[in-house]
Design a protein around this nucleic acid. Sequence first.
DNA 1: ATGAAGATCAGA
DNA 2: CTGATCTTCATC
Length: 199
Amino acid sequence: MRIIPRSFFARDSREAAPELIGKRLHLPSEGIIARIVEVEAYRGAEDPAAHSYRGETPRTRVMFGPPGHAYVYFNYGMHWALNAVSGSHNGHGILIRAAEPLEGLDAIRSRRHTGQKKLPNDFELLRGPGNLTKGFGITGDDGGTDLCSIDSRFFIEDAPLGNHVVIASPRVGIREAADAPLRFSLKGSRYVSRPIPKE
DNA sequence: ATGAAGATCAGA
DNA sequence: CTGATCTTCATC
């Protein structure tokens, strides 16, 4: 297995984000492997929708650190979201929004099925930023994790995209810069978090 | 010290 | 469509 190189993330998130589609997120301790099918780029001072837009704060500190590490934030009072720090100490990040579970489905199901009535189907297991972190058991404690190291609790494998197409569309759930096509997804995948708007 | 908004999700 | 739930940051 080939781990994704740190140089992959050491550039503008707008460049790296589309290429992150198809890579694999690993959680070895649970035997979980999932293919990334949807991401969004956030571009620091260039991007009014980014948490890092107004500079470094205690919360956004890791986004101004070395690329390839995890920026994990808590939102809406109940959800964690996983980002890969990118760029060069300039607040860039890539939000990982959805993935297709490949291995460890049962481990993911048990994390996602928390006493609710409905149990999620396979398409829904890692669909959406909050669901993805829940399925992987990722929380704020994982902030700063090195995604480019096989020794980390979780990391990213540099898998080829193969015979697939990546499409761009506007990002989800933001107000500022709502039109910028910085959301990237695997064309035709049923594992994406929500429908891609028609052009 | 205070409050508004938030890169969301599930259930009615 | 709405309620849940709580941190962060800007402003007072």
